[in-house]
């Protein structure tokens, strides 16, 4: 999984293209589904999101997805769950201070963002994650405009 998520950060521009191309369709589809079925399909949709984003990004299902703003790198893999990284402890070789065998999530994030068209979004201020949403689907939240 670690190798795939590193690949995703390195190919942030490619994934951004896919994201911008498919986002309107996926959202429209989800809006239709939620209108038709209410909350009855929330569980399978959430599971699908967990599976897809889990494989590609090591997604932690924080319920407040910022992948498109953080260089296609999930910030929730940071051991300090920093949403506005990096911290000051990054090692000289770019590895994490807490897990020396792991590349700093935010070093990858800034590198990924530099490749993206809308990479400057990484400079936006994010607020800490809303813990009541952990485990919920970001896709459904967007579809319902919550």
């Amino acid at each position: 999984m670690y190798a795939i998520r590193r690949w995703s950060s390195a190919h942030a521009r490619f994934l951004e293209r896919i994201y911008t191309a498919t986002r309107p369709g996926i959202l429209a589809g989800l809006r239709g589904v939620t209108r038709l079925f209410g909350r009855r399909l929330d569980t399978p949709i959430t599971a699908a999101e967990r599976l897809v984003k889990g494989v590609v990004f090591d997604c932690q299902m924080c319920g407040d997805c910022v992948l498109s703003k953080t260089g296609m790198t999930c910030p929730m893999n940071c051991p300090k769950s920093i949403r506005n990284g990096p911290c000051g402890g990054v090692r000289e070789n770019g590895m994490c201070e807490v897990k020396p065998e792991m590349r700093c999530v935010w070093v990858d994030a800034w590198n990924g963002a530099a490749k993206m068209k809308d990479g400057d979004a990484i400079k936006d201020l994010e607020f800490a994650v809303d813990h009541s949403r952990i485990g919920q689907s970001s896709w459904l939240r967007l579809a319902r405009d919550e």
């Binding site: 506005n84 990284g85 990096p86 000051g88 402890g89 990054v90 090692r91 000289e92 070789n93 770019g94 700093c104 935010w106 070093v107 800034w110 590198n111 990484i122 400079k123 201020l125």
Partner: peptide, 21 residues
């Protein structure tokens, strides 16, 4: 701030974010 460790090129951006915050 820590301007002395990687990612060196983004440390100024990080400073700017903290000032904006």
């Amino acid at each position: 701030i820590n301007p002395f460790v990687p990612p060196l090129e983004n440390r100024v951006d990080q400073l700017a974010k903290k000032i904006r915050a």
